[in-house]
């Protein structure tokens, strides 16, 4: 982990076919610990597919994904999540019928040593652990300004708040790599300014972040490094300034995609 020469996450010529469609092709990407990396590209470029490959939802047709030098492609999603690679969803997927706190508790599943049996027996040790975990969940809720609504049903809350709940649920799982799929989608301007602060706050705690985002305010302000893909291929990579001035990117993405902003109505 302390070896700086090994990237935290490395995609090595990764590709995937869906039937005849080459959704991601020969993608190389290397992510250093502590970076905030933006993954951008026009709609349908394959950004979410890349996330699904990293989190194990899809298995790559070819290439290898390495986590701290060790191949993880092909592992089931929960095993990848157990390595502290966690994600949020483009369309919010909170557990309906559960309160905000319960959603965050579910995110903390891996922190417990509880099995179905020890939970059933409710041993004192379990109860102590449970109490400590609840406390740490409340701390996360406070950090994201959600503590006052901890007991409200998560899916009945306004959209912007649900996004924060999803973020809290993911943080409860103690990510080392946090994958955010369009975290600003549906947020208004002041909410997306808040989001910038939240993301930078998460980075300052030592969490590496990858995000897919259309909101250029967010992308340009929080990322250290940007990778642009189109038709499943990487077309450019570099710091925010390089990307802003890259003619290929302007042509493929920035120039043609203004009408595509996913601002809230």
């Amino acid at each position: 982990m302390n070896d700086n020469s090994t990237p935290l996450l490395q995609l090595d010529s990764v590709g995937i076919n869906f039937g005849g469609l080459r959704a991601v092709d020969d993608l190389n990407l290397s992510i250093k610990k502590g970076d905030v990396v933006g993954l951008i590209g026009p709609n349908g470029a394959g950004k979410t597919t890349v996330f699904n490959l990293i989190t194990g939802v899809y298995k790559p047709t070819d290439g290898v994904i390495r986590w701290k030098g060790e191949p993880i492609s092909g592992l089931p999603p929960y095993r990848i999540a157990q390595r502290r690679i966690l994600r949020t969803f483009q369309t919010i997927r909170l557990f309906s019928g559960m309160s905000v706190l319960e959603n965050v508790l579910a995110g903390q599943h891996m922190e417990t040593h509880q099995t179905w049996l020890s939970g059933l027996l409710s041993l004192p040790k379990q109860r102590r652990e449970e109490k400590a975990l609840r406390k740490s969940c409340m701390e996360i809720l406070e950090q994201l300004d959600l503590a006052s609504i901890a007991h409200e049903e998560a899916t009945s809350l306004p959209y912007g708040i649900q996004r924060r709940v999803e973020m809290a649920r993911t943080l409860a799982a103690k990510p080392e790599l946090l994958i955010l799929d369009e975290p600003a989608a549906g947020l208004n301007d002041s909410e997306s300014v808040e989001l910038n602060k939240t993301i930078l706050g998460i980075r300052d705690q030592g969490v590496t972040v990858i995000l897919v985002e259309h909101d250029m305010n967010v992308v340009m302000n929080v990322t250290d490094h940007i990778c642009v893909i189109n038709f499943g291929r990487k077309i450019a990579e570099g710091g925010p300034e390089d990307i802003r001035n890259n003619p290929q990117v302007i042509e493929a993405y920035l120039g043609s995609d203004d009408d595509d902003d996913e601002e809230a109505a």
């Binding site: 557990f95 579910a106 903390q108 599943h109 509880q114 939970g119 379990q126």
Partner: peptide, 9 residues
């Protein structure tokens, strides 16, 4: 319990 939450989730 935590495992119960996992069941519901």
């Amino acid at each position: 319990t935590r495992f119960g939450t996992a069941i519901r989730a």
